[in-house]
């Protein structure tokens, strides 16, 4: 049961990674990172129960708390450098991993 859930979560992480690699806009990537973080929290929680070590749930808690900081840092970054924001600058196309 836990294994099936963990497999589904790992596959979702793979899909999120594909979106982060393909982009094309910055928002796709930021959302992909955010989703990756959420899935990591879930994966850790599932693994703790699959292994029968629920005391390691602390870690998932730490992730859930810390994830928020990265998103805020991205927001602050675009507030400071609005010229990099693709919405303000349509010519600017954040092309990435191709």
């Amino acid at each position: 049961m836990y294994i099936a859930v963990a497999l589904a979560l790992v596959l979702t992480m793979g899909l999120a990674l594909i979106r982060a690699l393909l982009g094309p806009s910055v928002y796709d990537r930021v959302l992909a990172v955010n989703m990756m973080g959420t899935k990591t929290v879930l994966l850790l929680s599932v693994i703790t129960f699959a292994f029968g070590r629920p005391d390691f749930l602390d870690l998932a808690l730490a992730y859930a708390l810390i994830n928020f900081i990265g998103v805020l840092a991205v927001l602050e970054f675009f507030r400071k450098r609005p010229e990099l924001d693709p919405e303000n600058n349509p010519d600017h196309n954040a092309e990435g991993a191709e």
Binding site: A16, L17, A20, L21, G23, V26, R29, V30, A32, V33, M36, G37, G70, V74, F77, L84, A94, E95, G96, A97
Partner: peptide, 11 residues
């Protein structure tokens, strides 16, 4: 793109 690299480093 260094911003993309930063987000990928998070992943």
């Amino acid at each position: 793109n260094l911003f993309v690299a930063t987000t990928l480093m998070g992943i």
